[in-house]
Design a protein around this nucleic acid. Sequence first.
DNA 1: CATGAATGAGGTTTCATTCAT
DNA 2: GATGAATGAAACCTCATTCAT
Lengths: 202, 202, 202, 202
Amino acid sequence: MSPLSEEQLIKRRETQRQRIVEAALKVFAVRGLHGAKMSMIAEEAELSAGQLYRFFESKEELFITLIRQVAKETTMERINDLPGSPFDKLRSFTASILKEESAQYPFKLIQHANNAEDVPDEAKQLLQHFSVKRYIEQLLPLFEEGQQIGDFAQGNARKLISAFLTMLSALITLNMPIDDDHQLPDADMLMRIVAGPRFQDR
Amino acid sequence: MSPLSEEQLIKRRETQRQRIVEAALKVFAVRGLHGAKMSMIAEEAELSAGQLYRFFESKEELFITLIRQVAKETTMERINDLPGSPFDKLRSFTASILKEESAQYPFKLIQHANNAEDVPDEAKQLLQHFSVKRYIEQLLPLFEEGQQIGDFAQGNARKLISAFLTMLSALITLNMPIDDDHQLPDADMLMRIVAGPRFQDR
Amino acid sequence: MSPLSEEQLIKRRETQRQRIVEAALKVFAVRGLHGAKMSMIAEEAELSAGQLYRFFESKEELFITLIRQVAKETTMERINDLPGSPFDKLRSFTASILKEESAQYPFKLIQHANNAEDVPDEAKQLLQHFSVKRYIEQLLPLFEEGQQIGDFAQGNARKLISAFLTMLSALITLNMPIDDDHQLPDADMLMRIVAGPRFQDR
Amino acid sequence: MSPLSEEQLIKRRETQRQRIVEAALKVFAVRGLHGAKMSMIAEEAELSAGQLYRFFESKEELFITLIRQVAKETTMERINDLPGSPFDKLRSFTASILKEESAQYPFKLIQHANNAEDVPDEAKQLLQHFSVKRYIEQLLPLFEEGQQIGDFAQGNARKLISAFLTMLSALITLNMPIDDDHQLPDADMLMRIVAGPRFQDR
DNA sequence: CATGAATGAGGTTTCATTCAT
DNA sequence: GATGAATGAAACCTCATTCAT
């Protein structure tokens, strides 16, 4: 009796939910928890504000859901598909993130969640610990290999990764418009954080 | 009849205005443009909400004024009073900023202003360009000296400072709680950005 | 081609309409005009929210229709089929209403309609006067017989019925959870309103 | 420095709070939890809707506060100041409540709280148990005296009071407009619930 | 026709700003 | 001048009603 098969409905619903999540990620990332208005998210997702509430009970729930998804799904694993040495992989990866706006949203979201005072602690800790921890584990083999062949600085690899990620995060969120006088430190500059002896003359 | 001379009144007024600006700096820095409430600023400045409007026409005007003042007055000059070599000075300076909360407010404010979309472009550009430019000029002699004695990396000194400041800003705003697994990169880690050959073995 | 004859269609439509009315009676009775949501009524009637509007133009029209139907159709006549004396009949009838939830809906609806200020006066008066009037007329022969044989209190029979109905209505809507300390006055307690000399020693 | 002394401010604030509570009692009593709009309460209390939130965090908190206050403060004790026998006192008391609209609000509120499905359980139980219990205890001496002198029906006095209160509550909330054909059962009718042998010929 | 997704008006709540005291 | 009470615009959220499928 239903005009659309149940399967179609579920699929459609899932598609829309995903559209909302993506729109919310973008708006929350750019404007923060308070600066983001539900109407903006609705507009970005191309539906009415009221519709959002069929998918998420409240703005806060939407935010936490987003956090949870970012914490769970954002991955560093595609770095392994890039060509070249560990150093090359990391530099390409870094450069690509710095170029591609949508890849920056998760980092910006983490940033906002860290600073906004009203974010539920659950979300904060989820993001800070869980997601950063995962990134570190995902990058660990690459870094260890880099250290073995002498391209990366020696020392505690996890700490090195943590430093690198913090700095990458910084570059993304600071988002300073580049002009002639003071360019953003670019991927190469960032690589000095991890560079071992072999790259010291750069 | 008047218990205070006109001069005293003006001075008193200026003192109060400054108290508001400092309170606003703290609250805006910590909570962002939207998260900061006028009542919070009033409380921090220890006066009534109504009083704020005798000094600033609106929240927005207060914010922009703040930005302007930060852009104009925040200084890096005290770095020169620190003891030791340029490298030592920079490391001490960095470490002290990372320890002292109030020193971090201007950096946080810049950060927020970059992300809040509602801030007039005037304010944004003021902050980003003008203030960073000033910091660079103030740090330039130190860096040039550091490069001459081989403690700092060679190359365009302004670009090097810019990179350093960006990274410092990052550390401040990311503000990640430190735990055993992923410590914040500390002052020493940050120094690798600027370190020349003499410090490469660190 | 048509799988159902026109007559069947009309009948089917009537059946559905009746299902809606019954569902609405239940939901409005339990939750009141404002507390009742169209979606709840739809769910109770086991059809979609949209379908409601093929039968009733609006929530308000549905409510008024309901009131009208209750005013017209709710009947006390089955009391006459009960066994025993008028007193016995009335007591059994009372007890059965107090036990059977669906029999209480009309009373609860009247109650709600009396308190909801947004209901058109038409509906209110319809319910209060007309339906109560009908109940009185339907109960009148029973009460007169009861008075003749001395089981019921003397005096204006209509007024006596009105009092009894009011009290019955009260018991139903108050709906206090029974515990050891304050039980609901039960059917027997209620009978004291109408009891004549013969029952005074109760 | 304050234009009003602190004492004045506190007193004024308390006055206003009381105005809100009274307005809310009236509006909630008449329209129920859902039917009552904050704007209506504000209008009744002669202030803006926004003001309500300086005194109560939300509509729900206002409602529960009200319930709590009614449960705590509504008293039956003034019945003892009335002249005459226990029977006379109870009849006068009943009649006065039935005449005086504001005296009926607590009863109506209890009624609404019992029926509205979304009221927090805390409020429901508070009202139903605690307040009814208190009324019973307050009326107990009067009823026991009435039973001793034979004016009141024998049996469990607490149960008798409970029945009486339920019926009184009913009369108040049913609130049927009186016309020639079916008057509300009046105070005298209600007294039959409690009347003992001495009054049986009424 | 039947569905339930979509809209938008209306209610709740917050807070920048004004203003009586 | 100073206060904080009061307002009202704007955001969040709900749900009666409509309408594409």
